[in-house]
Design a protein around this nucleic acid. Structure first.
Lengths: 148, 148
DNA sequence: TTAGATGCAAATAGTTTGCATTTGT
DNA sequence: ACAAATGCAAACTATTTGCATCTAA
């Protein structure tokens, strides 16, 4: 299995950034949690594990990790606050229910071919992608139909 | 050509929402601008066109339009503030340069098949999607290489 | 050794709320 | 007619900044 944890720290290092206690703690919090985390949740977990790490460093690290395509902020529910998703292998895919905000993750996206096409067409070098579908989940479809 | 403008107002109406002056103004601002707009830009344009429309109504409408898959908030640059993209036909696709934040839009995504697969697999009813690729644009690749 | 990163606390900016009033249907 | 939506301004909350200090390389 791929060791994403050391791989991501390595990525920081390769890009010329220091492996500080703050960054490694924040990265570990994200990796331990695994899924979707709001900045508030990250702040809370970091505070619990390493009280000496300041709020500002958390936001600075989240920005940095975003620039490095390690995570990606997205809007899940009532906007205004981003939810960060880890992007192992540079990509992530999910379905968001626009009624109850449930998130369903899925694996396959078959976007490799499109990715290569885009790189050629626009002369870009792509490092990751996020694919979000919106709609109603099974539960909300049932409730909706029951309303009739 | 499809008349997205009346189509979207119709969508509001069909979902049981009132076609108020505030909502129609905000919708028109989004459609006139066409592309990506931050909440600040929407506020500014709405203020210019219809000063009587309050700030709160703008945010309430942006939330509503998001729930209806008319627009979708996403993070383009320095996070913290969402950029809203119109989703004609329910979908939108772009490439974001993680170095200079340039946005390149593209049309084809070939996701219809995947969409149908997901609907079957998870028993969901999908209304739209957003596909974002991250990486370096041609200009930033050149600058990066020049640094060596 | 030293550029880069941190932690703190104060400042800022973006967004939401409560409520009396207005409006679409 | 009346529920839904609005506009206002105040309250709130999340995020950022400036700067002296610290630390990874």
């Amino acid at each position: 299995m791929p060791d994403h944890r050391s791989a991501r720290a390595q990525r920081l290092r390769d890009a010329g950034y220091k492996l500080t206690n703050a960054r490694l703690t924040i990265l570990d919090v994200l990796e331990t949690h695994g899924g979707h985390m709001t900045s508030a949740e990250v702040l809370e977990k970091v505070e619990a594990r390493a009280p000496e790490v300041g709020r500002a460093s958390v936001f600075r690290a989240l920005d940095l990790f975003t620039r490095l395509s390690i995570i990606r902020p997205t809007y899940i529910n009532d906007s205004s606050t981003p939810t960060y998703v880890l992007m192992p292998g540079g990509h992530h895919h999910h379905i968001i229910c626009t009624n109850c905000d449930r998130v369903i993750e899925f694996e396959d996206c078959h976007l490799e071919k499109l990715e290569r096409e885009l790189e050629r067409q626009f002369r870009v070098r792509l490092t990751g992608h996020l694919l979000e579908f919106y709609g109603l989940c099974a539960t909300c479809i049932a409730n909706h139909d029951a309303d009739k």
